[in-house]
Design a protein around this nucleic acid. Structure first.
Lengths: 231, 231
DNA sequence: CCCACTTCTTGAACATGTTCAAAACTTGGT
DNA sequence: ACCAAGTTTTGAACATGTTCAAGAAGTGGG
């Protein structure tokens, strides 16, 4: 695995080649799936040699990061639209979840292959890896915005952890979606439609004194895990 | 990927060869990790040809199912010990979770490679796949036993779903564990120690009238998703 | 014992991700 | 214009999971 050139000092020419490879890869992935798309085919399509692709991308998996980044950006945009003009927390959350399902739909067939690689802890593609931190943070940011414009009132401590909790829930939805073989991922939509009101209710219950204790424990747990190192 | 012979009609000789391959594989995986263990090395170690290994196992990944099965059995045994003589739900749950961490510890270094495959929906190794149903059911059964001998009282509906919910939580712990690089997986143990009392409290709260509604919604959601097809 | 049939085993060939030494090209300094 | 130092590109070679046609070994019926 060669050292990939520093993004900072890349010549415009090289930048172009790099982009051509990404474009070719995404085109072929989408057309024929991940496994059936060979590095040689990608290189051909991009008009470079196979070896050259490895000058820019350390491995075939690294090409997938481009896919992630693109999808994250699309989701952020779609989420923005969904959030405009809604106040109710439940509506906002549902909007953001469904926006993702919408954006991801074209890739459903081969997304599994991607997430397979993503599940490996040592892989830079893992959603928990340092390499994914920018995309992950951007995604968590979306959920912060869900809260920011909503009518939901939470204790300050919970409020602080809530974006990350919602992101985790989002990961759960993604996992379900990946395994969802129903046409148009209908089951995932059902899951979202039914889970969102539940989360809404639960979030509002946290204001009850009896429930407070559990919530505080949860918040403590999260910050204590964070304190011991990133995971 | 060749058709693997039906388990029913396997000659004793073949059964022996098959077992030799599994043993060799697990020995080498454990010694050198998954990636660095080649199929040729496994075949050599087992005293057969590389091609022959493919007569018994459709792919390298299929060898991993043997690993799962073995670990599941070990966990069941260790859980039994942990459960003996404890009544408190929290103690029982913690015992079962920690038993798993104990049993899985020797494999931590390369377990990630295994779970990578498990995350792919089309893979028979996915914990949600039909092929994994026996191991999954056996695992859920362990959590049913956690409840059976405990002092925890739940509504009948929740009680029915609870084993599966605990199994899902267990999957969460596993995911955390896979990503946990702390020595001896200390962070996972912290997670268990702190999450268990939280679950305990939460479970007991479900008897409160206010919380009942949310719980019923959750139970409904789970059974409605189950109704539409297996995932 | 021999024949057909199934089960098992082999080794060579194949596909594809990846590496690497060498060559081509760029660039900045003189 | 030329050189040295970097950067980019190449094509062949390599490693390893997997396939496959061929044959060996076992099995039951006559």
């Amino acid at each position: 695995m060669l050292a990939v050139p520093d993004p900072a000092n890349r010549s415009p020419k090289a930048e172009l080649t790099r982009q051509a490879i990404v474009d070719a890869a995404l085109r072929l992935f989408r057309a024929g799936g991940y496994d059936r798309t060979t590095m040689r085919a990608i290189a051909d399509e991009a008009g470079v040699s196979a070896g050259n692709a490895y000058y820019y991308f350390g491995s075939k998996e690294h090409l997938v990061q481009a896919f992630y980044d693109q999808m994250q950006v699309e989701h952020a945009r779609a989420a923005e639209v969904a959030l405009a003009g809604t106040q109710a927390f439940a509506d906002r959350l549902r909007g953001v979840f469904l926006a993702w399902v919408e954006v991801a739909a074209p890739y459903h067939e081969f997304a599994g292959k991607f997430f397979k690689n993503a599940a490996e802890p040592t892989s830079p593609l893992s959603p928990f890896s340092p390499e994914s931190a920018p995309a992950r943070d951007a995604s968590i940011e979306i959920f912060r915005r869900v809260l920011d414009g909503s009518d939901l009132r939470l204790s300050p401590a919970l409020r602080r952890e809530m974006p990350e909790l919602l992101w985790l829930l989002h990961m759960g939805v993604v996992l379900f979606w990946v395994h969802d073989r129903s046409p148009g991922q209908a089951r995932t939509r059902v899951l979202v439609d039914r889970a969102v009101p539940l989360v809404d209710k639960l979030a509002r219950l946290t204001r009850l004194p009896v429930v407070r204790g559990v919530v505080n424990d949860l918040v403590d747990l999260m910050s204590s895990l964070r304190a011991e190192g990133a995971s």
